[in-house]
Amino acid sequence: MSNPVFFSKPSEIRGAGPGLDVVWARLAQAQVLRRHALTLLGVAAVLASPWIASAWPQAGWVNQGLEWLGLGLMLLALLGRCACMLYLGGRKGAELIADGPYSVSRNPLYVFSVLAVLGIGLQTGSLVVGLALALAAFAVFRWIVAEEEQLLHTAFGAGYDAYCARVPRFGPRPSLWRTPQRVTVDLPGVWKTMRDALPYFLSIPLFEAVEAAQDAGWVHVRLWLF
């Protein structure tokens, strides 16, 4: 769930100095911590799920509606992340990406990732679970964005500052949309993004299996959440 607006190594940037190397190394360490934090969040959610259930009746329209909404959000996240890669994957060298999704939000990949996490949580039929997971993921992304912004500012200076002044950090602000007439697409990159996002949908059979186990009395619910 990375946000590779800036994806080149410091050595590939003209005039890159030792200061950029230091910021790059710090960001690399932060990205490792981000992956660990998101992994722990996922593991905690899976381990807690047998003892948590939706307070809405399973066959009721609210429960079913939340699950369908979650599916829609996961599909939107999948398509959105692929759209981001259409503008990222074909770029050569070190550039500040400011077209397409990046023209309305500085971190669209993270925005779509939060929507995906919300959709995954809604597969439990509980709005509280979905929002709790999404807020936890957002907190992690907000922290890593601050680290990335230091690198981008160091690399692009005034150009990045002007971009920040124009485009919201998360947003999005659709009125700012802009795109070139032609975009060079890296198809393997788009396919990799799609492949990496497909595990979102494993949450559907996972939480259905948890509900079946709860109904069968194999595990006992301790907390009911709307």
Rank of each mutant, 00 (worst) to 15 (best):
L69N: 03
A55I: 06
Q31F: 07
Q58E: 15
G17M: 12
A83Q: 07
V32I: 12
L76V: 12
V32R: 14
E67W: 00
H36L: 13
R35P: 00
L27D: 07
N63D: 13
P18Y: 02
S49P: 07
G19F: 05
A77Y: 02
A48T: 06
S54P: 04
L71D: 02
A48V: 09
Q58F: 11
G17K: 13
A44E: 01
L79T: 12
R34C: 06
A25H: 11
A55Q: 04
W24H: 08
L40K: 01
A28R: 15
V46M: 12
A44F: 02
D21H: 05
W24P: 00
R26S: 13
T39L: 09
L27T: 04
A77L: 11
A55T: 08
L40E: 03
L33T: 08
E67L: 05
L20P: 02
L71C: 12
L47S: 01
G65R: 04
L79C: 13
L71Y: 03
A28E: 10
L73E: 04
L66M: 05
V62L: 14
D21C: 07
G70F: 04
N63Q: 04
R34Y: 08
I52S: 03
V32E: 04
W61F: 09
T39D: 03
G19Q: 12
L71I: 06
S49D: 06
W68C: 07
G19P: 02
V22H: 12
P18R: 11
L20N: 06
W51K: 08
W61V: 14
W61H: 07
W56A: 15
Q31I: 15
L75P: 00
T39W: 07
A53E: 02
C82Q: 10
V22M: 08
A83Y: 09
N63G: 10
G60K: 05
A25I: 08
W68N: 04
L78F: 14
V62H: 11
P57K: 09
L75F: 11
A77C: 11
I52Q: 10
W61D: 11
V46K: 05
S49A: 15
A30R: 13
S54F: 01
L33C: 06
A44S: 06
P57F: 11
L66A: 01
G72E: 08
I52C: 13
L78I: 09
L38N: 00
